[in-house]
């Protein structure tokens, strides 16, 4: 039995690898969900009724069910029911499935926030721009966009912090993120077993990362505090 001092390098090496996977899932989700959320938001505000209803029903289903179910279904459904796994094998396949699930799920949450942001800018802003001879796109970029951003930053920040922790749900399809890495030393890995302390350290990774994000997002929020 090795001492903790001897175990540490092995454990941190493994946790770092896991955390890279966690970060990858985190950033890929944001990168995909920010634009997809906008598309869904426009769909849910469409003047074309069938599209509006379909979009809203979809958003309702995604937001009304656990992300964990969505992950399991998206990962296993093609292989088990269609008889053909579309995700590819191994860790890359699991990552792809996880990324798709997370992007769709978060895009739905973002879409509702965007919609609220867009609708919260008073009609009078648009009209004031029009009577000043501005084009629709000038009004969007010069007048309404920043007001929307100001209104969506706080709720989006909450979602981003939640996402940091939600990435661990990908553990359920055995994505080798940081919880998976820490948990390995419970059961036994690289000659270390029955150790709970690596899991405590995974918590520290989350705390530090969400702490940094909280500071950054708080800074952004304060940056936009100069107007009301």
């Amino acid at each position: 039995m090795s001492t903790i001092m001897e175990q540490m390098p092995i454990v941190f090496q493994a946790l770092n690898v896991g955390f890279v996977q966690t970060l990858k899932l985190f950033f890929v989700t944001l990168l995909g969900a920010f634009p997809l959320g906008l598309v869904i938001a426009f769909g849910s505000m469409s003047g074309f009724r069938p599209l509006r209803y379909l979009t809203r029903i979809f958003v309702w289903i995604i937001r009304g069910t656990p992300l964990m179910i969505q992950l399991l279904i998206i990962y296993y459904f093609p292989g088990l029911v269609l008889g053909k796994t579309i995700w590819g094998g191994g860790e890359d396949g699991r990552f792809l499935a996880a990324a798709v699930s997370f992007i769709v799920n978060y895009a739905c949450y973002f879409s509702e926030i965007y919609r609220g942001g867009i609708q919260s800018v008073p009609k009078g802003q648009q009209e004031a721009g029009l009577v000043l001879g501005m084009t629709k796109s000038q009004i969007f970029f010069k007048v309404t966009l920043l007001q929307m951003i100001k209104r969506i930053v706080p709720p989006i920040s909450n979602e981003i912090i939640t996402l940091v922790k939600d990435t661990s749900l990908a553990r359920i399809i055995a994505l080798q993120e940081i919880i998976w890495a820490g948990q390995a030393f419970l059961k036994g890995s690289q000659g270390i077993s029955g150790q709970i302390w690596p899991l405590f350290f995974t918590a520290v990774y989350y705390l530090v990362f969400s702490g940094i994000l909280t500071l950054l997002l708080g800074w952004l929020e304060r940056k936009l505090d100069y107007f009301k």
Partner: peptide
Amino acid sequence: RLHFGMVFQSFNLFPQY
């Protein structure tokens, strides 16, 4: 529209400027 100017009841100034 530029032939007309409009002053609204609720001002509608752009808050970020």
